[in-house]
Amino acid sequence: MIQLNNIEKYYANKGIKNYVLRLVTTTIKQGEFVSIMGPSGAGKSTLLNIIGMLEEPTYGSYEFLGEDVTSLNERKRIELYRNHIGFVFQAYHLIDEMTVYENIEAPLLYKKVGSSERASRIADLLDRFNIVAKKDLFPNQLSGGQQQLVGIARALAAQPSIILADEPTGNLQSAQAEEIMTLFKKLNQEDGITIIQVTHSEKNAQYGNRILHIADGVVKEDVAILS
């Protein structure tokens, strides 16, 4: 599903190249649950951003679903966002002016899903995440865990084939974190959604089935977890 070949990323500063990623080559298959781990500043987020096409690599090639997306035009990229990729952020990034319901609805509107279809999908998600009662509340009226649930519901609304999560539990208490991770695992196993997460926590990484250890921009270890 995802094929990275010799991905490099550096920032040139006064002629000196500051490498963030060096010669990263890896393949991620459909249905995998990958955790990217490493110390601060190792390049985890940058790698995730490159996978999510939020950043472009300086060098190297990237194939998504068999298509070279190293430098993709905007329309094609939006097409991928609408149909294949869901994002989950550490800071949730819900839109403050919109209710829970409206936040979940937003990607469906961009995908131009019909209104009855939209309503049924949102109802389904609210139901599944037990947040039906919260649907008319605004994000600042929810706890962090609840906000992150809405964030995940929003990411799932467009029925993506892959979810990219950047420290999804970084701002949460451990009980809530556990809940979110269990949910990810369930999504991965029951719905077959590919999940790539960046995390600091060894414990969270155990929910997945593969760990990429990164340090100083280089993949040091690629470990499969046998459950």
Binding site: E74, Y81, K111
Partner: peptide
Amino acid sequence: AIRKVLGAS
């Protein structure tokens, strides 16, 4: 930015 990653053109 959020709307962009949600697929807004």
